[in-house]
């Protein structure tokens, strides 16, 4: 089962130290995500869902346990290695879009490509393609302030997919959007999942958004309390530690 799994977490724990106090966030969490899955993470504030997302994306390191993404053991990678790995394999979508305000839409999308050996012309073509995929053709020269929230998030998604990453991580991608824009973004994510077979891990508070995922995880106090796939409780079926 490991061979088919895109992401495997084994007995992962994570705690933060604030002054002299150790604050546990995730405790003994095991999980397997298959390639091409659209996973939604839900739970109350402080349940550890963003921490889990950050661990899967290689932005943070576990206190204990093992995280394998495409057979890469993230915990064993150096800072430089994991940064390079992120640039090649992970696309990020944030709640507040986090576009660079001084760059035009096209330049924002090109940003991750600056780390590649592509020529300027190739970078432009790829950025235009990504903007076309998210439906923003003709908005290439707009600055973020000249776009609506929904359009900004589309640019952010274009930036996330422009390097053709294996994994997309989205932290409340519709949290700052109105219902119509949120619906458009969710449709886009669904499209990326179905048509481009991107593995997506999305943190959300919105049950409507979570319904668009193929699998839903509920976290509470750092523990996995529910694991639902297409209306089916699969928690007992997923046992990565016994899979190999």
């Amino acid at each position: 089962m490991d061979r088919e799994a895109a992401i495997v977490l084994r007995h992962v724990t994570k705690s933060y130290r604030r002054d002299q106090i150790q604050i546990p966030v995730l405790s003994d969490l095991s999980l397997s995500v298959e390639e091409g899955e659209f996973l939604a993470l839900m739970g109350p504030s402080g349940s550890g869902k963003t921490t889990l997302l950050n661990l899967i994306a290689g932005l943070d390191r576990p206190t204990g346990g093992e995280i394998l993404v495409q057979d890469n053991d993230l915990a064993r990678m150096s800072d430089g290695q994991i940064t390079k790995w992120r640039s090649n394999h992970v696309g990020f979508i944030f709640q507040t879009y986090n576009l660079i305000p001084v760059l035009r839409a096209q330049e924002n999308v090109e940003l991750p490509l600056l780390l590649t050996s592509l020529s300027r012309k190739e970078r432009r073509e790829r950025a235009r393609t990504a903007l076309r995929v998210v439906g923003l053709e003709g908005r290439e020269d707009h600055f973020p302030r000249q776009l609506s929230g929904g359009q900004e998030q589309r640019v952010a998604i274009a930036r996330a997919i422009v390097t053709d990453p294996y994994l997309l991580v989205a932290d409340e991608p519709t949290g700052d959007l109105d219902r119509v824009s949120a619906e458009e973004i969710l449709l886009l994510l669904e499209q990326l999942n179905h048509e481009f077979e991107k593995t997506i891990v999305m943190v959300t508070h919105d049950p409507q958004a979570a319904k668009r995922a193929t699998r839903l995880l509920h976290l509470d106090k750092g523990k996995l309390v529910a694991d639902v796939a297409q209306g089916r409780d699969v928690r007992t079926a997923v046992q990565p530690e016994n899979a190999s």
């Binding site: 994306a57 430089g80 940064t83 992120r86 090649n88 986090n98 780390l115």
Partner: peptide, 16 residues
């Protein structure tokens, strides 16, 4: 600060 964090997240190295 947050922009730099985004750059780091999408793969910019510390040296860059």
């Amino acid at each position: 600060t947050s922009e730099v964090a985004v750059l780091r997240a999408i793969g910019f190295q510390k040296g860059q």
